[in-house]
Design a protein around this nucleic acid. Structure first.
Lengths: 223, 223
DNA sequence: AAGTGGTCTAGACCACGTG
DNA sequence: ACGTGGTCTAGACCACTTG
């Protein structure tokens, strides 16, 4: 049982990138050229490059080429309090200019959210859209929900974050300027009160090409 | 500018799965059948299914079919102290039987590790391989490194975890029984002492089809 | 004008599970 | 024997960037 051609080609480039033989910003040969070198068809090369893309090792720019990613990429330090101080979260570590734009509305709660908050269907929640950008480039966009009767969201004692890859909602895709079919990193944040009830929920989307690795930094409290 | 066919097909199935119209365990129609229904070729269907796979919504079983994932899948709760009490980490939440196998050697430090630990090239580190399985099925495998002169690894106060998708090292792929070309979730754990020096580093691999979502649970300490 | 990546087609072989 | 997903080929058109 031997490994498929696209795996070995991807492995070869992955090794060269990680070892530094192919430095950040370097352009890979075109599909046709790699195909010729390895004596395979270009569709095999496409599958290989796709593996590299999924690992965040390279980025594709349409009609220009495939380029080795600048790494380490932006790093996301958790816990991150998007609603309270996104400026601090992003600004501190990068020292770069960050813009935050926020819209809040009062909306009726939908089925799934009602359950997590323990509300009935007629209740309202506060719905906030937060868009973060850095010198014009989109960094993240989030949908935040909280019950209207909660005054103090800082009473949360536990933050639970769930990371996954998803097809973005169209509003998110538009803001992040992702291409159709491109997956985004999604973090669902749940801020929990001491009684383990959720008091704030936020779905944050990040473009994959800026955050290919996520860092969580946690304090270890003695128990 | 309209979205590609494979995106809309993937979106349609994603919606039906998330809404419950296609319950967990249900089998999707074959490539040929979906292709016929949407009047496209099967390669378009393959790209669509691949998007669903990457989102963890479906699983592919060779020569059987594509099946809707049981969700929520296993959930990884962080902070996780693999080396100290993996039984507790996994056992507590699932209530299932977990087996842990551990091998420790003393090895010479390599370049990259020497830098993170601040050691010179002749120094040794403790190298531990930890394999975790659950009723015969592999759950995770990790490579752990720590300097030999550190007695008490529980003095760490901060845990930093970096999550990424990677092609597994062959030892990891073998234990997790992944197919060639299949990416695994990798978590690099760095346990830091109060002076911010790393005192233990661990690279943990998880099969994607068991952990499609990662959960981090953090205590919010007032500052 | 030439080259690029993105999308799509039609067809093929394989190894293996299912009837 | 048939259907399945996995791999691979050869070819095509498009929209756009680069020289």
């Amino acid at each position: 049982m031997t490994e498929p051609a696209y795996v070995s080609i991807a492995g070869e480039y992955a090794r060269r990138i990680r070892s530094g033989g192919l430095p950040a910003g370097a352009q890979l040969p075109s599909y046709a050229e790699i195909a010729g070198r390895h004596d395979v068809s270009d569709i095999v090369v496409r599958k290989a490059i796709e593996l590299l893309l999924r690992q965040g090792l390279v980025r594709s720019i349409r009609r220009r080429g495939i380029f080795v990613t600048d790494r380490p990429n932006l790093v996301r330090i958790s816990p991150e309090r998007q609603l309270e101080d996104p400026e601090a979260t992003f600004g501190n570590e990068s020292g770069r200019q960050v813009q935050v734009d926020r819209d809040t509305k009062r909306v009726a709660v939908t089925g799934e959210l009602a359950a997590t908050f323990g509300l009935s269907a007629e209740d309202d929640v506060l719905y906030t859209v937060t868009r973060v950008s850095e010198v014009g480039r989109p960094v993240s966009i989030s949908d935040t929900y909280q019950p209207v009767d909660i005054e103090d969201t800082s009473s949360a004692t536990v933050l639970e974050e769930t990371v996954s890859d998803q097809l973005p909602r169209s509003a998110h895709a538009e803001w992040l300027r992702t291409t159709p079919g491109e997956l985004v990193k999604t973090v669902r944040q749940r801020f929990l009160a001491p009684d383990d009830k959720a008091i704030l929920i936020s779905d944050v989307s990040y473009p994959r090409d800026r955050y290919d690795s996520f860092v969580f930094r946690m304090n270890l409290s003695p128990e």
